[in-house]
């Protein structure tokens, strides 16, 4: 028998957990992401005429299938924001930025995205922002960020 003292410091090792998930898109979300690749923002119209952005396959209130895609933006209004002073390596910008709820012109609901404002002082609820597209778009939600308009 080997007697070991209690509460020795446990061994630790750096460990990066990675998964290379590829997700299939149905017809509606394929239309949404294809439009992003082509630098267009598409919401989806509900039966009551309200427009959701990002597009969704179902009306969140009635569960009806919905598929009428309509163009919105590229201008929008910041409804709320949180300032990230120290971005993490995974996050979309290496410099400080804001996560924001942005309501695009023509959409009835705000959605989560990123505002590249340069400094916290430039952020305000109600401010106008405009989508700025990446040089290379791929059909993904990070093909653009917002900047103050």
């Amino acid at each position: 028998m080997t007697k070991q003292s209690a509460a020795t410091e446990a061994l630790t090792a750096p460990h990066t957990l990675s998964y290379t998930y590829k997700r299939s898109l149905g017809a509606v979300m394929s239309g949404f992401f294809t439009a992003l690749r082509d630098r267009r923002l598409l919401g989806v119209k509900r039966r009551d005429g309200k427009v959701l952005f990002p597009a969704r396959e179902y009306d969140p209130d009635t569960s009806e299938a919905i598929d009428e895609l309509v163009e919105v933006g590229p201008m929008g209004v910041v409804r709320s924001w949180a300032w990230v002073a120290k971005p993490r390596r995974q996050q979309p910008l290496a410099r400080p930025f804001a996560y924001a709820l942005v309501q695009l012109d023509g959409a009835d609901t705000p959605f989560l995205h990123v505002v590249d404002a340069g400094s916290e002082a430039k952020m305000a609820t109600g401010m106008c922002v405009r989508a700025r597209w990446a040089d290379e778009t791929k059909g993904a939600i990070d093909d653009f960020v917002f900047e103050p308009a």
Binding site: P14, T16, L17, T20, Y21, M29, K138, G139
Partner: peptide, 14 residues
């Protein structure tokens, strides 16, 4: 666009 790449990468001190 019919497929979306969603890579996940998280760092741990295991």
């Amino acid at each position: 666009v019919t497929v979306l790449a969603c890579p996940i990468s998280l760092d741990y001190a295991y």
